[in-house]
Amino acid sequence: MSMPASDRMAPPVRKRVFKITVLDVVVIGAVAVLIGYLIYRVNTELVYHWDWSRVFEYFVYYDEETQSWRKNLLIEGLIILVRICVWAAIFGLVLGLVMGVCRVSDVLLLRLVSRGYVEFVRNIPPVPFFFIMFFFVGNQLLKPLDLTALAQGASPFWQDVFLVIFGETNLLRNFAAAAIALALYEGAYITEIVRAGIQSIERGQWEAGQSLGLSRYQQLRNIILPQAVQRIAPPLANQSIQLIKDSALVSLLSVQELTFMGNEIQATTTRVFETWLTVGAMYFVVCYGLARLFARMERRMGRGRAT
């Protein structure tokens, strides 16, 4: 994290010259001891035989019948993860935008509704929240709709489309309920981001719009939101990484995304260590990659604005 150098700040680090200090020796020593102890435990006491190939088969495998490489559970889990995140992002963004605008509305009712929503989501732990929403949304709203029958009654073309954007149609209700639960969860955080963005716009901008005779909606739409969007974009990008991390929780609702597949693979192969380290690494690559990408985009946008 680079901080703007200002007088208020304590000096960052005194020496940047490359020099081995006592602390270096202590840290390296401690890490070495820890790793040494781990290796001793795993090899000598647990007698664990590492076999990464068993887990790597679950990325892609060679199908003898069709003579071709096919994707396996880990890649499928990743695809379902992307799918559910995209849906949750779309719904969550719409919800967050509406609720965020309500949050700064001059109608008390709207403020109460959005505030109540945000506090409800933020004060209930994620797992009970997901289960409550999953039961209510899944059983009450989606059961009468019978999405599976709807989807399977569609023409073959649309069935192919559904397969790409929703996944297997017989799991559709499950998928939709989980996506809605995830969207409701993320929506609360997006609401706060939108609220902060709108409130960061100077009051004079509202007043100027008012003095031009614009209605409150027009002020918001034409003056405030276009300016707020620039300030909302960076935290929103970070929230998308948060969304990917939170999406791991829908594995508890039996949505077959990456973490769920990890559970399946560790059960079938009994390669517990390798499986979880692989799944963790996959999440890390995705999230870290996105974080770097967003940081770069932000730098570029910041430079563009400065000139």
């Binding site: 602390l23 840290v27 791991a248 594995s251 963790g280």
Partner: peptide
């Protein structure tokens, strides 16, 4: 904030690992 490169690397590595993986996967690991 220390002047030890190993200390800084350890701290940064730890933060990046935690921040870029889901808490559920951390619990499993």
């Amino acid at each position: 904030r220390s002047n030890s490169f190993a200390g800084r690397a350890l701290a940064t590595g730890y933060l990046q690992l935690i921040r870029n993986t889901p808490i559920l996967v951390q619990v499993y690991i």
